[in-house]
Every structure is written in structure tokens, then in C-alpha cells.
Amino acid sequence: MRYYLDAEYTCFGGELMSLALVPADPALESFYVAVEWAGPTDPWVETHVVPHLGSDFVSRELASLKLATFMRERAVGHMVIVADWPTDFEHLLALLITGPGRMQPVPDFDMKFQRLPGFNTASTSRMPHNALADAEALRDHCEANHG
């Protein structure tokens, strides 16, 4: 099963603010989490991302647990996680790490970087710069054009 990934973060190289995984099948449940952050936030992010995060923020530790649980519960067949931006993978993988030499127990999965010249999730997303809506836009584009 393919899952489409998007993440929002405080600035270039900054902290994770939200992350979403959306299944290829729109009838199945998606994952979204908004994560508490402490560092400074870029003014552009304050204007375009923060208003779309929602209000149910969780600690990074709880976000990690929720993500791992979601992935384990959906481990039917092989999981492939698709993203169109490398930093999204960076945040996904970092969220699975729980400490030095430790990580959440998750099933095996593959990552597929899907380069999409000319496509911009913000232009097709129902709520630009919201990780869940942007992951849905990515899924809809990829499934319609690349299968």
C-alpha cells in the first residue's frame, strides 16, 4: 500500500510542526499529527503554516508513538511511503527515533521520492501548507497521473 507524506516545519532546517500520511485509497484512514515545538519560527511559516495546524498539539514523544502505532496497524502488505520533497522523509525518520540507538517498532517500509516538476501541492491543496491537505493533494496528483 502506498502512503503519501507531507510535513511542515518551523523554517529551513527547523523543527517538525506537523506530519501526515495519506493512503492511496481515500476510503482508508489517514494520519495527521501536530507537534509541539520550541524553536523560532520563520515569519513566512507564522503567516502561511501556523494558522492551518489545528489546536491539538502533542509532544514529540507522543507524536512518535502515534506514528508508530498507525504504521503497525496498517502493515497489511508492503508499505511504500511517497514524498515529493526530501525534507519530508527526514522528519518522518527522525520522528521514529526515540533515543541513542533506539527507534519505534515499525514494519519494514520503502521510501519513494517522486520528483514532480511543474506540480505544486499548494496550488491544488484544499488548505495550502496543512500537512494533511497537502498529502491528499500529492496523493490525488500521483494516483491520477502515475498510479
Score class of each variant (00 low, 15 high):
Pro40Thr: 12
Gln104Gly: 01
Met111Arg: 09
Ala68Asn: 11
Asp42Trp: 07
Ala137Cys: 01
Trp85Lys: 11
Asn145Tyr: 01
Gly39Asn: 09
Val82Phe: 12
Val35Phe: 02
Met71Leu: 15
Ser64Gln: 01
His78Cys: 07
Val82Gly: 12
Thr69Cys: 05
Ala20Met: 10
Asp134Val: 05
Pro107Cys: 05
His129Tyr: 06
Val50Gln: 10
Phe57Met: 12
Ala131Pro: 07
Leu62Pro: 00
Val82Pro: 14
Gly147Leu: 15
Leu138Tyr: 11
Pro100Tyr: 05
Pro117Val: 05
Arg74Met: 08
His52Pro: 10
Glu8Cys: 04
Leu95Cys: 03
Ala34Arg: 08
Gly14Val: 08
His91Ser: 02
Ser30Phe: 12
Val49Phe: 00
Glu143Pro: 11
Glu29Phe: 09
Gly147Phe: 14
His129Cys: 04
Ala83Arg: 07
Met111Gln: 10
Lys112Val: 15
Phe119Lys: 00
Thr47Pro: 00
Pro86Val: 10
Ala7Val: 15
Met17Thr: 08
Ala122Thr: 06
Arg2Gln: 15
Val80Ala: 12
Phe89His: 04
Ser18Thr: 06
Glu36Asp: 15
Met1Pro: 15
Glu46Val: 12
Met103Val: 03
Ala133Gly: 00
Glu8Leu: 06
Pro86Lys: 13
Ala7Ser: 15
His129Val: 02
Ile97Ala: 05
Ser18Leu: 04
Ala20Gly: 06
Ser125Ile: 00
Ser18Pro: 09
Ala38Leu: 08
Phe89Tyr: 02
Arg2Lys: 15
His78Asp: 14
Arg60Ala: 04
Phe57Lys: 14
Arg102Thr: 07
Leu21His: 13
Gly99Val: 00
Leu93His: 13
Thr87Phe: 13
Lys66Phe: 00
Thr124Gly: 02
Glu46Asp: 06
Phe70His: 12
Pro86Tyr: 03
His91Thr: 03
Arg60His: 06
Leu92Lys: 07
Glu90Thr: 10
Thr47Trp: 08
Arg115Ile: 11
Leu138Asn: 04
Leu5His: 12
Cys11Trp: 06
Pro100Gln: 02
Phe70Ala: 07
Tyr3Ala: 07
Ala63Asp: 03
Asp84His: 14
Ser123Trp: 09
